[in-house]
Amino acid sequence: MLAALWRYRYFVMASVYGEMKGRFARSRLGLLWSILHPLAQAAIFAIILAEVLGTRLAGVEDKAAYPIYLLSGMAAWTLFNEILSRCLTVFIEYAPTLKKIAFPRICLPVIVWGGALLNHVLLLLAIVVVFLFFGHFPGIAWLSLLIGIVLISLFAFGLGLTLGIFNVFVRDIGQVMAVVLQLWFWLTPIVYPIEIVPDHLRWIINLNPMVALVGIYQDAMLLNRWPDFMPLLIPAALSIGFAAAAFAVFRRASPELVDAL
Protein backbone atom coordinates (compact mmCIF):
# COMPACT_ATOMS: atom_id res chain seq x y z
CA MET A 1 0.00 0.00 0.00
CA LEU A 2 2.85 2.38 0.78
CA ALA A 3 4.45 1.64 -2.58
CA ALA A 4 1.14 2.32 -4.30
CA LEU A 5 0.81 5.63 -2.49
CA TRP A 6 4.28 6.63 -3.64
CA ARG A 7 3.51 5.73 -7.26
CA TYR A 8 0.30 7.77 -7.11
CA ARG A 9 1.76 10.68 -5.13
CA TYR A 10 1.08 13.22 -7.87
CA PHE A 11 -2.50 11.99 -8.13
CA VAL A 12 -2.88 12.45 -4.36
CA MET A 13 -1.43 15.97 -4.41
CA ALA A 14 -3.56 17.00 -7.39
CA SER A 15 -6.65 15.54 -5.71
CA VAL A 16 -5.98 17.46 -2.49
CA TYR A 17 -5.77 20.67 -4.51
CA GLY A 18 -8.84 19.76 -6.55
CA GLU A 19 -10.89 18.91 -3.48
CA MET A 20 -9.98 22.17 -1.77
CA LYS A 21 -10.83 24.11 -4.92
CA GLY A 22 -14.09 22.24 -5.52
CA ARG A 23 -15.28 22.56 -1.93
CA PHE A 24 -15.50 26.33 -2.22
CA ALA A 25 -16.37 26.64 -5.90
CA ARG A 26 -18.34 29.82 -6.73
CA SER A 27 -17.65 31.16 -3.24
CA ARG A 28 -16.15 34.64 -3.15
CA LEU A 29 -14.14 33.97 0.01
CA GLY A 30 -13.20 30.46 -1.08
CA LEU A 31 -10.61 28.80 1.15
CA LEU A 32 -11.07 31.46 3.83
CA TRP A 33 -14.29 29.75 4.92
CA SER A 34 -12.31 26.80 6.27
CA ILE A 35 -10.55 29.29 8.55
CA LEU A 36 -13.49 31.54 9.37
CA HIS A 37 -15.79 28.76 10.60
CA PRO A 38 -13.61 27.57 13.55
CA LEU A 39 -12.57 31.15 14.31
CA ALA A 40 -16.22 32.24 14.41
CA GLN A 41 -17.15 29.34 16.69
CA ALA A 42 -14.28 30.15 19.04
CA ALA A 43 -15.21 33.86 18.99
CA ILE A 44 -18.81 33.02 19.98
CA PHE A 45 -17.63 30.88 22.89
CA ALA A 46 -15.14 33.55 23.95
CA ILE A 47 -17.69 36.37 23.89
CA ILE A 48 -20.36 34.43 25.77
CA LEU A 49 -18.09 32.75 28.32
CA ALA A 50 -15.38 35.36 28.82
CA GLU A 51 -17.33 38.60 28.43
CA VAL A 52 -20.87 37.65 29.48
CA LEU A 53 -20.17 34.97 32.10
CA GLY A 54 -16.78 36.34 33.14
CA THR A 55 -14.83 33.11 32.66
CA ARG A 56 -11.16 33.47 33.57
CA LEU A 57 -8.18 31.14 33.80
CA ALA A 58 -6.85 30.56 37.29
CA GLY A 59 -3.35 31.90 37.82
CA VAL A 60 -3.28 33.91 34.57
CA GLU A 61 -3.86 37.65 34.85
CA ASP A 62 -3.98 38.42 31.14
CA LYS A 63 -7.56 39.26 30.07
CA ALA A 64 -6.92 37.65 26.70
CA ALA A 65 -5.81 34.38 28.31
CA TYR A 66 -9.18 32.67 27.99
CA PRO A 67 -9.74 33.50 24.29
CA ILE A 68 -6.16 32.32 23.59
CA TYR A 69 -6.77 29.12 25.58
CA LEU A 70 -10.01 28.56 23.70
CA LEU A 71 -8.53 29.19 20.25
CA SER A 72 -5.65 26.83 21.01
CA GLY A 73 -7.96 24.01 22.01
CA MET A 74 -10.30 24.65 19.08
CA ALA A 75 -7.39 24.46 16.64
CA ALA A 76 -6.37 21.03 17.95
CA TRP A 77 -9.96 19.75 18.01
CA THR A 78 -10.73 21.05 14.50
CA LEU A 79 -7.83 19.02 13.09
CA PHE A 80 -8.96 15.88 14.90
CA ASN A 81 -12.63 16.33 14.03
CA GLU A 82 -12.08 17.08 10.33
CA ILE A 83 -9.82 14.07 9.70
CA LEU A 84 -12.01 11.67 11.67
CA SER A 85 -15.32 12.90 10.21
CA ARG A 86 -14.09 12.92 6.61
CA CYS A 87 -12.41 9.49 6.85
CA LEU A 88 -15.65 8.15 8.30
CA THR A 89 -17.59 8.90 5.10
CA VAL A 90 -14.89 9.15 2.43
CA PHE A 91 -15.61 5.78 0.79
CA ILE A 92 -19.33 6.50 0.64
CA GLU A 93 -18.77 9.99 -0.77
CA TYR A 94 -16.44 8.71 -3.47
CA ALA A 95 -18.43 5.56 -4.29
CA PRO A 96 -19.05 6.59 -7.96
CA THR A 97 -15.34 7.28 -8.42
CA LEU A 98 -14.36 3.93 -6.94
CA LYS A 99 -16.69 2.15 -9.35
CA LYS A 100 -15.46 3.94 -12.47
CA ILE A 101 -11.72 4.59 -12.00
CA ALA A 102 -8.98 2.11 -11.12
CA PHE A 103 -6.56 3.50 -8.53
CA PRO A 104 -5.32 2.41 -5.07
CA ARG A 105 -8.26 2.93 -2.72
CA ILE A 106 -5.94 3.89 0.15
CA CYS A 107 -5.40 7.17 -1.72
CA LEU A 108 -8.85 8.44 -0.70
CA PRO A 109 -8.31 8.72 3.09
CA VAL A 110 -4.79 10.06 2.45
CA ILE A 111 -6.28 12.80 0.25
CA VAL A 112 -8.65 13.69 3.10
CA TRP A 113 -5.71 13.69 5.52
CA GLY A 114 -3.69 16.01 3.28
CA GLY A 115 -6.59 18.43 2.84
CA ALA A 116 -7.16 18.59 6.59
CA LEU A 117 -3.48 19.30 7.25
CA LEU A 118 -3.51 22.11 4.69
CA ASN A 119 -6.61 23.59 6.32
CA HIS A 120 -4.94 23.32 9.71
CA VAL A 121 -1.81 25.18 8.65
CA LEU A 122 -3.94 28.02 7.28
CA LEU A 123 -5.97 28.08 10.50
CA LEU A 124 -2.80 28.32 12.61
CA LEU A 125 -1.62 31.26 10.49
CA ALA A 126 -4.95 33.00 11.07
CA ILE A 127 -4.72 32.32 14.82
CA VAL A 128 -1.24 33.86 14.91
CA VAL A 129 -2.73 37.06 13.47
CA VAL A 130 -5.45 37.03 16.15
CA PHE A 131 -2.84 36.46 18.87
CA LEU A 132 -0.77 39.38 17.61
CA PHE A 133 -3.89 41.54 17.91
CA PHE A 134 -4.04 40.51 21.59
CA GLY A 135 -0.32 41.33 21.96
CA HIS A 136 0.51 37.64 22.41
CA PHE A 137 3.60 36.64 20.44
CA PRO A 138 4.58 33.07 19.44
CA GLY A 139 7.49 31.56 21.36
CA ILE A 140 9.99 28.77 20.79
CA ALA A 141 7.64 26.25 22.44
CA TRP A 142 5.32 26.61 19.43
CA LEU A 143 7.62 24.11 17.72
CA SER A 144 5.99 21.44 19.90
CA LEU A 145 2.85 21.94 17.78
CA LEU A 146 4.55 19.68 15.23
CA ILE A 147 4.33 16.86 17.79
CA GLY A 148 0.67 17.64 18.36
CA ILE A 149 -0.09 17.71 14.63
CA VAL A 150 1.57 14.33 14.05
CA LEU A 151 -0.08 12.58 17.01
CA ILE A 152 -3.55 14.09 16.55
CA SER A 153 -3.66 13.49 12.80
CA LEU A 154 -2.32 9.94 13.17
CA PHE A 155 -4.86 9.16 15.90
CA ALA A 156 -7.75 10.64 13.91
CA PHE A 157 -6.64 8.98 10.68
CA GLY A 158 -6.30 5.52 12.22
CA LEU A 159 -9.60 5.70 14.09
CA GLY A 160 -11.44 7.37 11.20
CA LEU A 161 -10.19 4.93 8.56
CA THR A 162 -11.13 1.90 10.68
CA LEU A 163 -14.61 3.22 11.40
CA GLY A 164 -14.96 4.44 7.80
CA ILE A 165 -14.45 0.89 6.51
CA PHE A 166 -17.01 -0.50 8.95
CA ASN A 167 -19.37 2.35 8.02
CA VAL A 168 -19.47 1.06 4.44
CA PHE A 169 -21.00 -2.19 5.66
CA VAL A 170 -22.99 -0.82 8.65
CA ARG A 171 -24.17 2.75 8.00
CA ASP A 172 -25.35 3.22 11.60
CA ILE A 173 -21.74 3.80 12.63
CA GLY A 174 -21.69 7.21 10.95
CA GLN A 175 -24.87 8.27 12.75
CA VAL A 176 -23.58 7.10 16.13
CA MET A 177 -20.22 8.83 15.69
CA ALA A 178 -21.94 12.18 15.05
CA VAL A 179 -23.33 11.99 18.59
CA VAL A 180 -20.11 10.53 20.05
CA LEU A 181 -18.03 13.41 18.65
CA GLN A 182 -20.31 16.00 20.27
CA LEU A 183 -19.99 14.25 23.63
CA TRP A 184 -16.25 13.79 23.11
CA PHE A 185 -15.84 17.53 22.50
CA TRP A 186 -17.42 18.41 25.85
CA LEU A 187 -15.39 15.73 27.65
CA THR A 188 -12.22 17.46 26.44
CA PRO A 189 -11.06 20.60 28.32
CA ILE A 190 -11.38 23.08 25.45
CA VAL A 191 -14.19 25.41 26.49
CA TYR A 192 -13.41 24.95 30.19
CA PRO A 193 -10.13 24.48 32.12
CA ILE A 194 -9.57 21.03 33.55
CA GLU A 195 -9.17 22.51 37.05
CA ILE A 196 -12.93 23.14 37.35
CA VAL A 197 -13.85 19.48 36.80
CA PRO A 198 -15.04 17.94 40.12
CA ASP A 199 -12.70 15.37 41.60
CA HIS A 200 -15.26 12.56 41.39
CA LEU A 201 -15.54 13.12 37.61
CA ARG A 202 -11.85 13.71 36.93
CA TRP A 203 -11.26 10.01 36.18
CA ILE A 204 -13.55 10.25 33.14
CA ILE A 205 -11.49 13.13 31.76
CA ASN A 206 -8.26 11.24 32.43
CA LEU A 207 -9.46 8.36 30.24
CA ASN A 208 -9.74 10.72 27.27
CA PRO A 209 -6.56 10.59 25.13
CA MET A 210 -7.46 13.92 23.52
CA VAL A 211 -6.87 15.74 26.81
CA ALA A 212 -3.09 15.32 26.58
CA LEU A 213 -3.06 15.98 22.83
CA VAL A 214 -5.08 19.20 23.09
CA GLY A 215 -2.90 20.15 26.05
CA ILE A 216 0.12 20.32 23.71
CA TYR A 217 -1.53 23.22 21.90
CA GLN A 218 -2.74 24.95 25.05
CA ASP A 219 0.64 24.75 26.79
CA ALA A 220 2.57 25.94 23.75
CA MET A 221 0.24 28.66 22.47
CA LEU A 222 -0.89 30.12 25.79
CA LEU A 223 2.00 29.51 28.19
CA ASN A 224 4.89 29.08 25.72
CA ARG A 225 5.65 25.87 27.59
CA TRP A 226 6.89 22.54 26.26
CA PRO A 227 4.56 19.61 26.96
CA ASP A 228 5.11 17.00 29.64
CA PHE A 229 5.96 13.93 27.58
CA MET A 230 4.93 11.30 30.13
CA PRO A 231 1.14 11.85 29.67
CA LEU A 232 1.69 11.63 25.90
CA LEU A 233 2.97 8.03 25.98
CA ILE A 234 -0.50 6.44 26.01
CA PRO A 235 -1.99 8.76 23.31
CA ALA A 236 1.12 8.16 21.17
CA ALA A 237 0.76 4.38 21.55
CA LEU A 238 -2.95 4.63 20.69
CA SER A 239 -2.17 6.74 17.61
CA ILE A 240 0.35 4.22 16.29
CA GLY A 241 -1.88 1.28 17.24
CA PHE A 242 -4.99 2.69 15.53
CA ALA A 243 -3.01 3.57 12.39
CA ALA A 244 -1.55 0.06 12.17
CA ALA A 245 -4.96 -1.51 12.82
CA ALA A 246 -6.54 0.72 10.17
CA PHE A 247 -4.12 -0.45 7.47
CA ALA A 248 -4.65 -4.08 8.48
CA VAL A 249 -8.44 -3.76 8.40
CA PHE A 250 -8.30 -1.84 5.12
CA ARG A 251 -6.13 -4.47 3.46
CA ARG A 252 -8.53 -7.21 4.53
CA ALA A 253 -11.74 -5.37 3.56
CA SER A 254 -10.53 -3.57 0.43
CA PRO A 255 -11.62 -6.26 -2.09
CA GLU A 256 -15.21 -6.09 -0.78
CA LEU A 257 -15.56 -2.30 -0.52
CA VAL A 258 -16.83 -1.64 -4.02
CA ASP A 259 -19.34 -4.50 -3.86
CA ALA A 260 -20.69 -3.18 -0.56
CA LEU A 261 -21.02 0.32 -1.98
Rank of each mutant, 00 (worst) to 15 (best):
D199S: 13
A3M: 11
L238I: 15
S34Y: 12
G18V: 08
G22V: 07
L118H: 09
P104D: 06
R23L: 09
R56T: 11
I234V: 15
H120G: 03
P255G: 06
P189A: 14
C107A: 10
E51F: 14
R202S: 13
S85F: 13
T188S: 15
L261F: 05
F80S: 04
L154S: 15
D199V: 09
R225E: 10
L98F: 03
I111Y: 01
G18C: 07
Q175G: 01
R56K: 13
F11V: 09
R105D: 02
G160R: 07
P189Q: 14
F91S: 07
L117P: 00
I47M: 14
I205A: 10
P104L: 05
L29K: 10
Y94C: 12
F133W: 15
A40D: 08
L213W: 04
V128G: 05
I165V: 15
L39K: 12
Y217A: 10
Y17F: 12
L154V: 14
I68L: 11
P193D: 03
F134Y: 15
W6V: 14
V170R: 11
S153D: 07
R7D: 11
N224A: 10
L163Q: 01
L117M: 06
L98R: 08
W33H: 07
F250K: 00
W226H: 08
I47Q: 06
V90M: 14
T97C: 02
F137G: 06
V90K: 03
F133Y: 15
L117C: 03
G174D: 12
Y10V: 10
M177A: 13
R251L: 01
P227C: 06
P109A: 04
L57C: 05
P67W: 08
M210R: 08
L159N: 00
V258Q: 02
V211D: 03
V197Q: 00
R56P: 14
A50F: 05
P96F: 04
A3I: 08
I140G: 01
L163T: 06
V121E: 02
H136P: 11
S239H: 01
A126W: 09
W184N: 02
L146S: 11
A14Q: 14
M13T: 14
R23V: 04
G164D: 05
G148V: 03
A25F: 13
A76H: 06
L117Q: 01
G215H: 12
E19A: 13
H120Q: 13
H136L: 13
K21Q: 12
I196W: 00
I194N: 01
I190G: 05
S254G: 00
R202W: 04
L207K: 07
P231Q: 09
L187I: 10
F169A: 08
I92P: 00
Y10C: 01
V170Y: 15
L143H: 10
M13K: 10
H136K: 14
L108S: 00
F80L: 05
S27F: 12
G73H: 04
I140A: 14
L183F: 15
